[in-house]
């Protein structure tokens, strides 16, 4: 799969841009959190496209954003149904 570039993104309509980014980000997220990959990717797609492009080029920044998203998700779930041990 060829790398996604800023010029490729700019040539696509806004809605398609998020789709293109999601298709690249999802498999990377899936390797870290397979069960939550869809939701995490959905959250990440709310970030600016330029930032998402940077994350695709920098595994470290992607990883930290994914961990952030997981923490937010867990807090969200904890509010809806607080039932945990520890």
């Amino acid at each position: 799969q060829e790398p996604l570039t800023a010029s490729m993104l700019a040539a696509a309509p806004p809605q398609e841009q998020k789709q293109m980014l999601g298709e690249r980000i999802y498999p990377l997220v899936h390797r870290m959190h397979s069960a939550l990959a869809g939701k995490i990717t959905g959250m990440l797609l709310e970030i600016d496209n330029s930032e998402l492009l940077h994350m695709l080029e920098s595994p470290e920044s992607l990883h930290s954003k994914v961990e952030e998203a997981v923490a937010v998700l867990q807090a969200h779930h904890a509010k809806e149904g607080s039932h945990k041990s520890g």
């Binding site: 809605q15 998020k18 999802y26 990959a37 869809g38 939701k39 990717t41 797609l45 709310e46 969200h76």
Partner: peptide, 26 residues
Amino acid sequence: SNGSSITWPPEFHPGVPWKGLQNIDP
């Protein structure tokens, strides 16, 4: 009954057109 139809976060599925937050129908 509380509002259990909260769909946040929107879930991304490969191959499915992404609608983002717009997929929340009234």
